[in-house]
Design a protein around this nucleic acid. Sequence first.
DNA 1: TTGCTCCTCACGTCACGTGAGGTGGC
DNA 2: TTGCTCCTCACGTCACGTGAGGTGGC
Lengths: 129, 129
Amino acid sequence: MQDGTFHQIGDVAEATGLSLRTIRYWEEIGLVTPSGRTEGGFRLYTDADVERVQLAKNLKPLGMPLEAITELLDAHAGLSGEPARHSDRLRALVDLAEDHMQELDSKVAAARDALASIATALRNPLGGL
Amino acid sequence: MQDGTFHQIGDVAEATGLSLRTIRYWEEIGLVTPSGRTEGGFRLYTDADVERVQLAKNLKPLGMPLEAITELLDAHAGLSGEPARHSDRLRALVDLAEDHMQELDSKVAAARDALASIATALRNPLGGL
DNA sequence: TTGCTCCTCACGTCACGTGAGGTGGC
DNA sequence: TTGCTCCTCACGTCACGTGAGGTGGC
């Protein structure tokens, strides 16, 4: 959970490939909040915070609004030995995310086909079919 | 190319699953322009116009700005028996699109893994790993 | 003390969503 | 003539990008 070491926002940005602005915006909307701040106001992230940023980044392609990703990660984080209530909530959110995953898969397939049909024009420059 | 029949924007929206606003916006930025208008100002789309809308929609998941998709479709449309200039341009744009396709593939894989790791918590509600 | 990193506004941008008020077309 | 579909503004939204001006920390 905590090993005593903290990370600054620049470290998190480098580790995840996100911009500082994005990480700050995600805090603004409550998606990822740093566990601490220095006296001067510098954000301090634990390893768990960084993992949450990375999870959020990886889930983004699903195309859900960031608010939905926030709910999903909140439900996931609150599951440590909880009663069945949180589990039901999490299950519903995971189902929703899996629906988005299905849609994403078919969109990617359609994109691949579209790109292939355009690329075909390079080998067969006849205009029509 | 043309069969004499034209389609109104509502038909195009229903056929492609896009909103009227999206189709109008795409015209605003020069992505898809209807081939004609009625006297009263109603947009008229040919089958080729509709195909272009559908291609643009399918390419969207690649994550390129709409301006890049416009260039790609323009280069593709201008390839009917053209000299090698357009072919070079098209090749470069297709290469760029294929790069985006690669990135999309790895993003989807990461999203699938992330979602699976969250879903695992439902079968193994121990909090840790 | 000098850099480098961080901070908070705050306006700009992209790709639309969402009415408001009005007119075309079978 | 009545609906239904379309039209053009024009402001709102989401997820940031991009400076402006200022301060923290090794």
